[in-house]
Simulated assay, not measured.
Amino acid sequence: MSQKPREPETALIWERPEPAPRPKPEPLSRERIVRAALTLADTEGLASVSVRKVAAALDAGPMRLYGYVSTKEELLELMVDAVYGELVAEGPLRGSWREALRAMAQRTRRAAHAHPWLVDLLVGRIHLGPHALAYLEAALAALDGAPGFETVDAILQAVGTVNAFVIGAIRNEASERSAERESGMTKKEWQHATSPYLERMVATGRFPMLGKVMREATHPSFDVAFDQGLDCILEGLATRLPRRKK
């Protein structure tokens, strides 16, 4: 008797159906699993997230969760896409190309503040979840047809450049905040503690620019530094746009 051929298994979780609902002992869904994982990551950090710990938070056995997510990597992808869903829910990116890119940058930074673990998952991978794709689509569409952005390559370059700046900025910010927590010192306290050493090094005459930084730099707040850096990026993009003929 010939066997019925097996249907090919969909590789990506976004197109793989969930198991049939089971009302007992407790109904599960990918949405509930992701919400529990988000809460765990927000309160205890990304290192605390595992299928076993999420299952415990849901009072379910780990093997039940594996019917919804096959690996921890899939769980992390679902978490990132849920955050992109929060960004999409803020509405379209409106206004001029500058305003749209600024709004995109600020939304991403706010999301990183709400979910400090997010920055570790924004690099080194392409996110293909439906919310991530919707957010990318919104960013590209906001520039489509704007003067100077007549080609897709120009749009991709602008969006990619702003994204690269944002990820770098929020990673630096996260690193500084983490260092403050681990050392128990604020940024100013750390600078005060290390200044005698730096002054001795500058006094050697080998580091004149560092000496100038110590004497003259204003060291703005994270918010101000982010806005100033973003202004530099947007001004740089503006200089590359074709000049309009008078």
Rank of each mutant, 00 (worst) to 15 (best):
D59M: 11
L241F: 06
A174R: 11
A47T: 13
S70E: 10
I126Q: 06
D144S: 14
E216A: 13
A82F: 02
L241R: 06
Q157K: 07
H113A: 04
A164I: 05
A193S: 11
R16M: 07
A164R: 11
L12N: 08
V166P: 04
V34I: 11
D59S: 15
Y66H: 12
A225Q: 08
M209K: 07
V80K: 05
A55L: 04
F222W: 14
A169K: 03
Y135K: 00
R30E: 01
K212I: 01
R102F: 06
G211A: 09
V123R: 14
R125I: 00
S96M: 10
A56W: 01
A138S: 15
R32L: 13
E150P: 00
L12H: 11
A139P: 03
A47N: 11
R98T: 02
P147N: 03
G85D: 05
L122G: 06
E176F: 03
L230C: 07
A132S: 05
K53Q: 11
Q157W: 09
A55T: 07
P196T: 05
L198G: 10
K53S: 10
R94V: 14
T194Y: 09
K4Y: 12
W97N: 03
G85Y: 01
E99Y: 00
A142S: 14
T239D: 15
A36Y: 07
T43H: 08
L133T: 03
A100N: 06
L58D: 04
E86K: 15
W117G: 00
A20L: 13
